[in-house]
């Protein structure tokens, strides 16, 4: 991974980020003047009560949303000033997403689901297939590549989603409650895949979770309340 950390300094740097919904009386500060730095190769868990702004933070970090105020430097680039289409390009080339509800395309094979981001990256047919199969192998699903999502268990579907996030060779994977729909057995399965990716490939992972057990897989735990970071510390595992 020679091309990683091209610039010195943190890979992700939020500086005084606020995300405010509505205005006046009904204004909601989903993020309230947040400062946060995440280095290349970190595995960060975000926890907090419902409505504390975790998903909002993920959306900003994932360049899906633009902050109302503040600067967000992704590898030195100020995302807050980019257009919608420019943010799409950042997502395409540097970011991978894992959602609570998997969000796979229905009636579309695992392989095609994983190939999807590569189509937008402009890879040819063969290269796409190769990369998709490699990504599926990493999550242990190579032999299920031709199954539709409806033929896979929840854990397997989430692994396909991880493969899709990985296929484009991103610098950061963002996972918003990736085990939220899974039983504890499948959750462990998913967390082990993520931990391996972080350890073996140095992939940067930011994950929102409601479960202490899952957060324990990360190196660092951020605790949010009311749109602010209340606590930011290494996990027991990292300590």
């Amino acid at each position: 991974m020679a091309d990683r950390s091209a610039t010195p300094g943190p890979l992700i740097a939020l500086r005084g980020i606020s995300r405010i919904y509505g205005a006046g009386e009904t204004e909601v500060r989903a993020l309230d003047d947040v400062d946060l730095s995440i280095d290349d190769g970190e595995f960060v868990a975000i926890m907090g009560p419902s409505g504390s702004g975790k998903s909002t933070a993920m959306n900003v970090i994932g360049c899906l949303d633009a902050p109302t105020r503040g600067d967000y430097l992704f590898d030195g680039v100020n995302v807050a000033r980019l257009s919608r289409d420019q943010r799409a390009l950042l997502r395409r080339h540097y970011l991978g997403f894992i959602f609570q509800g998997y969000n796979l395309l229905p009636r579309t094979s695992a392989l095609h689901n994983v190939e999807l981001p590569l189509i937008y990256k402009g890879l040819g047919r063969a290269a796409r297939r190769d990369a998709a199969l490699r990504a599926l192998a990493k999550v242990g699903l190579a032999e299920r590549s031709h199954h539709d999502p409806s033929e896979l268990s929840g854990g397997q579907q989430q692994r396909v989603a991880i493969a899709r996030a990985l296929a484009g060779n991103p610098r950061v994977v963002l996972a918003d409650e990736p085990t939220g729909n899974l039983d504890s057995h499948m959750s462990v399965e998913i967390m082990e895949v993520l931990r391996d990716l972080n350890h073996r490939e140095g992939l940067t992972i930011v994950m929102v979770t409601h479960e202490e057990d899952m957060a324990a897989y990360a190196d660092r735990l951020i605790w949010m309340v009311d749109g602010r970071i209340e606590r930011d510390a290494p996990t027991k595992r990292a300590a």
Binding site: A88, L89, R92, H93, F97, N103
Partner: peptide, 16 residues
């Protein structure tokens, strides 16, 4: 709608 959301999230531009 969801499919469109997925495509946009993984980096499709509006024009695509």
């Amino acid at each position: 709608t969801r499919e469109i959301g997925i495509r946009l999230a993984i980096g499709a531009q509006a024009r695509q």
